[in-house]
């Protein structure tokens, strides 16, 4: 198989202005009156095969979201290369779609209009689809995610799981090759999450997309991924890639109690455990999109606990 996405020695540094952002840290580290740098990702190399489902786990603040932003073209690496189909990423493109944890639906648009927003520009054939074509496409993809009949609902009329389904439909609607998902199910309750995991596997099999799925749930990573990439504590480096070899996940059996699953899960857990401890001791917290990381030891614990998704 060919590499769909290639990361070659990618490093991403942020310039941190003390006291900026959340203001959680008015007193910066000593001698930090001027701007300092924060290395989110350090010379990371990784290949994602065409049509692969790759999950990415790592402790909080290990640069998972930063990595996804780089893949999406929302930011550019400090050094190294991000290649998609062998071409460097220069910005957001129609070949890649992002699904965010907080759904990021446009509240003034109905489900159908949310799904079709990516179709409002020129399509791949250089032609603008008209309103009816867009609505038809939106209906098609809402049906794919199991939301037929909900076209005219506004986001506030939908539950969290349904919102995320709409967001998935939106990212699929303009037919990208790559789906980048940033902890998409983290805000959902356990039952909805399992349901959506199976739906996602079904959609992946049906559409053959390449999926890069970020999570901090080990169970989720092992359940969904063909391979699980484990990142180290900040600065994020690729610690190891675990090939997941478990029976077919069609949602019929309880794969999560299968011995192979338990074994793989434990492997990832062991790999991640030390890193989580490291990150915890250093008090790492999520790096915000503007590059600030309000490292606060007090609230680092609940974010980094790997068992969270097992609940």
């Amino acid at each position: 198989m060919t590499a769909k996405i290639s990361l070659r020695g990618v490093t991403k540094q942020f310039t941190v202005r003390p006291g900026k952002g959340s203001g959680a840290r008015p007193k910066a580290r000593p001698g930090q009156a001027n701007a300092s740098t924060l290395t989110a990702i350090d010379s990371l190399s990784l290949d994602v095969r065409d049509g692969e489902f790759l999950t990415l786990v790592g402790p909080s603040g290990s640069g998972k979201t930063t990595l996804l932003d780089l893949l999406a073209g929302l930011s550019s690496p400090t050094s190294g290369e991000v290649l998609v189909d062998g071409k460097p990423v220069t910005g957001p493109g129609k070949d890649r779609a992002v699904v965010f944890q907080q759904y990021a639906l446009f509240p003034w648009r109905t489900a159908s209009a949310n799904v079709s927003i990516g179709l409002e520009g020129k399509g791949a054939d250089g032609r603008k689809p008209n309103r009816r074509e867009r609505a038809a496409k939106a209906r098609e993809y809402l049906e794919l995610v199991g939301l037929a009949g909900f076209e005219d609902r506004y986001p506030h009329e939908l539950s969290g799981g349904m919102k995320q389904r709409v967001a998935i439909a939106r990212s699929l609607a303009y037919e990208p090759d790559v789906l980048l998902m940033d902890e998409p199910f983290a805000a959902l309750d356990a039952q909805t999450r399992e349901q959506l995991q199976d739906e996602l596997l079904r959609i992946w099999k049906a559409t053959g997309k390449t999926i890069v799925f970020i999570t901090h749930g080990i169970d989720e990573a092992v359940y969904l991924g063909q391979r699980v990439a484990v990142l180290s504590a900040r600065p994020g480096r690729l610690k190891e890639i675990v090939e997941v070899d478990i029976p077919d996940r069609d949602g019929a059996d309880d794969i999560r109690s299968h011995p192979a699953f338990v074994e793989q899960r434990h492997k990832v857990w062991t790999l991640l455990h030390d890193e989580v401890r490291l990150a915890h001791d250093a008090g790492h917290r999520k790096i915000l999109p503007d590059g600030t990381a309000p490292d606060e030891p007090s609230s680092a614990t609940h974010e980094t606990l790997p068992e969270r998704s097992a609940a």
Partner: peptide, 13 residues
């Protein structure tokens, strides 16, 4: 919401 702006940019707007 900056998230909406990020989402819109990722959609290629």
């Amino acid at each position: 919401d900056p998230l909406l702006i990020r989402a819109a940019r990722s959609l290629g707007l």
